[in-house]
C-alpha cells in the first residue's frame, strides 16, 4: 500500500534557529501515529508545513501522493486538520458548522445533508445538532471539531494537541472516536501530543526533540529497547548523591529533572543497598517499568520536562 504521508529531509528555520531538522518519516494507511515531543520541539512547525500554511525551508513532503509545496489544493482536499484551538464558529450551531465545512470542501445538497447526519450520529452529537457551539462543553466542542475535520473523509487527519483542556475521560473518548473513524474510513491519524499516556495507546509514536526525529516505532518496541527497570531517587542534593552512587556502586547514575535516575535489570534488588548506603540523603525511591518518558530520555539525552530552549 502506498504511503499516506511521506517526508524526506524536511527542515525549517526561523531566522538562525533550526525549528525542524532533517525529518524523514512515512505513515501507512489507517495508522494512528503520535507525534510526541516537548512544547517547542517542532511539532507545530511540522504541522504547519504539512497543512500547507507554511513552506518548509528544506526537504519534501507528500500527502496522498501530492507534494505539499507544488500541489497545495490537492493536499488540502486529502487532508483534515484539527487544531489546538477548535476551529468552529461559536455563533453557529453544530449542524451549521458542519454544513459550512462541507461547502468549503465542495459538498452540497442532499449528499451533504446526509453526510452531516451520519457524522452527527457517529460522534454522538445528534441531540445537540441545533445548539450553538458556544453552549457546548469543551469535550463536546472538541468532538464536533473532529467531526468537522473528517466530514469530507480525508486520507490523513492531522490533530495538533487535540486533548488540550480536556479531562482524562474526554481524552479517552476522543481516542476511541479516532480509532472508530480509522476503522470505518481508513483515515490515517497523526496526532501531536506532549502526553505520554496519549502516545502509548497509538499504533506508533514519532518522537520529536529540538526539531529532530529521535525515535519512530511501536510504543512497546521502543520501551522494550530501554529494557529492565528504572530507579528514581529524590534528594536534597541530587547531584552530590549521583556522584556518590557512581563512586560507591560503580554504576551509571544521572540527574534528570531533579531526580537521580538509574536503569537496571533488577531495580528492586538495588533499593535495599542504596537505602542502606545513603539513609539520610534519599528522600524517596521509586522503581518502575520503563515508559515512553524513558525512551525519550535515552534518545534525546535529557528529561522530557527540562524544556526545549536548550
Amino acid at each position: 500500500m502506498s504511503a499516506v504521508l511521506e517526508t524526506r529531509g524536511l527542515g525549517h528555520d526561523y531566522g538562525s534557529r533550526k525549528a525542524l531538522d532533517d525529518v524523514s518519516l512515512t505513515l501507512a494507511p489507517g495508522e494512528i501515529v503520535a507525534l510526541l515531543g516537548p512544547n517547542g520541539g517542532g511539532k507545530s512547525t511540522l504541522f504547519r508545513i504539512l497543512s500547507t500554511v507554511m513552506d518548509a525551508s528544506r526537504g519534501e513532503a507528500t500527502i496522498a501522493g501530492h507534494d505539499v509545496r507544488r500541489a497545495p489544493a490537492d493536499v488540502r482536499q486529502a487532508l483534515g486538520v484539527t487544531f489546538q484551538a477548535p476551529s468552529l464558529d461559536r455563533k453557529l450551531t453544530v449542524r451549521e458548522n458542519l454544513i459550512h465545512q462541507g461547502h468549503l470542501y465542495g459538498l452540497r445538497g442532499p449528499d451533504l445533508a446526509k453526510r452531516v447526519q451520519v457524522m452527527l450520529e457517529a460522534f454522538g452529537l445528534t441531540d445537540r445538532a441545533g445548539d450553538y457551539v458556544e453552549t457546548l462543553s469543551g469535550g463536546l466542542a472538541r468532538r464536533a471539531d473532529v467531526a468537522k475535520s473528517v466530514l469530507h473523509r480525508p486520507r490523513l487527519l492531522l490533530l495538533d494537541e487535540p486533548s488540550t483542556g480536556l479531562d482524562p475521560a474526554a481524552r479517552r473518548d476522543l481516542l476511541r472516536l479516532l480509532q472508530r473513524t480509522r476503522d470505518e474510513s481508513g483515515t490515517t491519524c497523526f496526532l501531536a501530543t506532549h502526553l505520554f499516556e496519549e502516545a502509548e495507546v497509538c499504533d506508533r509514536v514519532a518522537i520529536l526533540d529540538r526539531g529532530r526525529l529521535v525515535a519512530l516505532g511501536r510504543p512497546a518496541d521502543l520501551v522494550r529497547e530501554v529494557g529492565g527497570e528504572v530507579v528514581k531517587l529524590t534528594s536534597d542534593d541530587p547531584e552530590g548523591l549521583a556522584v556518590a552512587i557512581r563512586e560507591r556502586f560503580a554504576m551509571e547514575a544521572v540527574v534528570a529533572d531533579g531526580e537521580v535516575r538509574m536503569e537496571r535489570e533488577d531495580g528492586a534488588a538495588l533499593l535495599t543497598p542504596l537505602l542502606a548506603a545513603f539513609p539520610d540523603r534519599i528522600l524517596s525511591a521509586t522503581v518502575a517499568r520503563p515508559g515512553l518518558s524513558d525512551v525519550f530520555f535515552r534518545r534525546a539525552g535529557r528529561a522530557f520536562e527540562e524544556g526545549s530552549d536548550a
Binding site: 497543512s51 500547507t52 500554511v53 489544493a73 490537492d74 488540502r76 482536499q77 487532508l79 486538520v81 487544531f83 484551538a85 477548535p86 476551529s87 468552529l88 464558529d89 461559536r90 465545512q101 468549503l104 470542501y105 465542495g106 468537522k148 475535520s149
Partner: peptide
C-alpha cells in the same frame, strides 16, 4: 484569534 480562520485556510478554497 478564535481559530475559525485556520480551518478555512487549510480547506481547498
Amino acid at each position: 484569534r478564535e481559530g475559525f480562520l485556520q480551518g478555512v485556510l487549510v480547506a481547498p478554497v
